[in-house]
Amino acid sequence: MTTTAEAGAPVEAPPLPTGDHAIATSGLTKRFHGGQLAVADIDLMVPRGAVFGFLGPNGSGKTTTIRMLLGLVAPTAGSHELLGVPMPDGWATALPKVGSLIEGPAFHPHLSGEANLRRCDAADRTADARTSRQRIGSALERVGLTAAAGKRYKAYSLGMKQRLGIAAAMLGPRELLILDEPTNGLDPQGTREVRTLIREIAAEGTTVFVSSHLLAEIEQVCSHVAVMRAGRLVAQSSLEDLRAEAGTRIRVETPDTSAARGVLTGLGLADVRISDSEVSAELGELEPERVCAEMVGVGVAVRGLAVVRPSLEDVFVELTGEGFDVNG
């Protein structure tokens, strides 16, 4: 102990028993001065190593939540931890390990992309000045901006600006990446690239918390999802659990709808639905080929047969009562 004191090294408090959550909030609430309740009593649990999709329509409180997570906005009630460190008191310990893109990129327009990143890096007192150039170079390379590094930010396209924002979030070794709408303004190609990037980052062990109002854009990369609606957290789960909950359906295309319905009911399938030229039911544990054989056996004219996994969209519609993809 004495040696430590003499050396002047800070004595670190023992780590808190927070389990393995990169983000953990408890009753996090924000009411703005006007009385508007932006975020109401949310308990987010983001496991370490997850790619966590944070979904909800614009204005549902996603960005306010993210601002609270990063200590930009003080919660009205509740508490939260980042990487096991209580916030906002532990900002100096937690935030250097967190990269973020908050409500779109923001840089100095008259500086080049590279100069902007240099400024971000200079602001971080934990960043090593000696490795600055190399870290900036590799961040620019990862987002494909090396060629445009010397160009002024104001001359960047929307997609380039967005990518520079992502580069800024990856300037140092991060344990958690918080990306608010990272695909905003990107063309389909750019969106694909961001998804690939998220996959790569996650593969390195970094937890990624990514918000979006477009489920389809992040569905493929997420391991977990949470849904916000009007400031409340209406769903939170791993993707596997969600899919399992919704169940797979079998859909039979046939002119003999009533006969087909008889077969499905006979097989004991639940939730049999019938429309003009189609019959469907929850498949459960049954093999689809059994259904096909039965249909053909009793002479139902089968024009098509498909096993339908519900899209996440459908799952959410079921969970939340309505679709949340408000503007497509």
Partner: peptide, 8 residues
């Protein structure tokens, strides 16, 4: 917001 999130 970025300067503070870095954190400066």
């Amino acid at each position: 917001r970025y300067l503070l999130a870095v954190p400066a």
